[in-house]
Design a protein around this nucleic acid. Structure first.
Lengths: 188, 188
DNA sequence: TTTAAACTATACTAACTCAATGTAGTTTTA
DNA sequence: TAAAACTACATTGAGTTAGTATAGTTTAAA
């Protein structure tokens, strides 16, 4: 049930771009991202290329160029990024919503394994399709501010502002988990 | 977030052995399992060997030999099987409970990605460590009986008996999902 | 006591994926 | 005009996956 390094790097880079945007930094260079996250620069360039082609980020070429998010962070779900890099979220093809594939088992309707794995796929998708880059950025920034850690991509400690995190997600069912708790607990 | 073919085959074989036990069949041969599940026989033999070494199953050698579960199906969690074949359930090492590994990111305590992936790992483990082979066997048999499908490993349709499914799991939190619903809904 | 059916052990391998690395550009702007 | 940055594409070494192949050993039924 692994996330690939490529997927991890893509998420880290996008979260960084989200933080940069939140902190008022217009562009971030690949070299800076690579240094901050300890990612081989050529590998990261490859990933950024893919993220650009797929419309997640935009680039500014030339000297003092760099990358920025192509749309607001709350319009980018984590699930869409993971699917792009690592394929379907489902553990096996016969329970994938986005890339169903018939499995070799003789009777799919009476397959207990399939039902179990459908639960797993729904649990994963329930998290990764619910949360956006903006959620992860907010949790990260909030923890850093609480601990008085200097924010990345900004010299001065950024002013506290209230992000429009749930603007476009009207009726979410309550959910358990770390992120959910951290996002609703404003004392953190 | 994939389950390997090897892991899938191991689970299928173990579920079959669980069904066989439930239906009163003492031993099942590898050749029969391979034919039923369309698994290459030499590959399955390899897997059965591993499951035996690890104490999940026992073998009877010689003519008319075969395999059986080494302990009651409700003592074998799905999570333990998946971990054996495919390693930790966690998407990244830094959130694994059974095989923690420090990640390359500069500040683990303020890493939003880590918190998110911890939610994912808990969601997966919450399912795979909660359910046992017995649960999957029961769901499978119940669906087959409801649809009057002939049960595997038995010529006559097996009598309905009440399995001791939750015998050793005293206080489980309620949980959502297909399996949970199917297991509690006795009309299915 | 033979022998077929079954499990056991170990070695090998083709194909694929992962995680980069290398080379050679093009574009932009200070 | 040249440094800094992005772009494109080819290559590669290591590791994993999903099997095959070969040569047994064990057991029980005939």
């Amino acid at each position: 049930m692994k996330l690939s390094k490529k997927g991890e790097y893509a998420l880290r880079a996008l979260i960084d771009l989200g933080i940069a945007a939140e902190v008022g930094r217009p562009l971030v260079q690949v070299s800076e991202l690579a240094a901050k996250e300890l990612i081989p620069i050529k590998f990261l360039e490859q990933i950024m290329q893919l993220l650009k082609v797929e419309g997640f980020i935009e680039s500014q070429r030339g000297k003092f160029g760099g990358y920025r998010l192509a749309r607001s962070a709350n319009k980018i779900t984590i699930g869409s990024i993971v699917r792009l890099i690592d394929g379907p979220l489902a553990p096996i093809g016969c329970v994938s919503h986005t890339a169903y594939e018939k499995c070799s088992c003789p009777d799919e309707t009476h397959c207990g394994l399939r039902m179990l794995m459908l639960d797993v796929r729904n649990a994963i998708a329930g998290i990764l399709d619910r949360y956006t880059l903006a959620d992860v950025v907010e949790v990260t920034l909030r923890k850093m501010r609480r601990d008085n850690v200097p924010l990345p991509f900004s010299d001065a400690p950024a002013a506290r502002r209230s992000p429009a995190r749930n603007a476009d997600r009207p009726d979410l069912k309550p959910i358990e988990g770390l992120l959910s708790n951290l996002l609703s607990d404003y004392s953190i």
